[in-house]
């Protein structure tokens, strides 16, 4: 049990408030919580990659960091325009 795994355990529980916020309130409030969850997941993936001693899986965190923006933007553009 190294420090990274312990950190990942705690970080996993910080997704609980994000999850509660994702399922409450109007669409924009949910969207903000979703963006937060994406960022937390990026950090969590780095923690797990380091905890499992697999440097090649840093790619997942990088993909998440690059794509959270796209996902958030999809919701933001459609919520302000058409839905």
């Amino acid at each position: 049990m190294n420090a990274w795994l312990m950190g990942a355990d705690v970080l996993l529980f910080t997704l609980v408030p994000c999850g509660i916020a994702v399922f409450r309130g109007n669409a924009i409030e949910r969207l903000v919580a979703l963006e937060m969850a994406g960022i937390v997941q990026t950090i969590l993936l780095v923690f797990l990659a380091e905890a499992f001693h697999r440097p090649s899986t840093y790619d997942l965190a990088l993909a998440m960091a690059l794509l959270t923006f796209g996902g958030g933007l999809v919701f933001a553009r459609f919520l302000e325009r058409w839905l």
Binding site: L12, L15, C18, G19, V22, F23, N26, A27, R30, L31, A33, L34, A37, G38, Q41, L44, L45, L48, F52, R54, S56, T57, D59, L60, A63, M64, L67, G71, F75
Partner: peptide, 30 residues
């Protein structure tokens, strides 16, 4: 609102795949 929730579900599912040691599937999901 359901689509936003579904997106969050995708995030959690990607984490599940990664924790169960399937990074390829997790990357597809992400």
């Amino acid at each position: 609102r359901q689509v936003v929730g579904l997106s969050f579900y995708g995030i959690i599912l990607g984490l599940l795949f990664f924790i169960l040691q399937a990074p390829d599937v997790a990357l597809s999901q992400i």
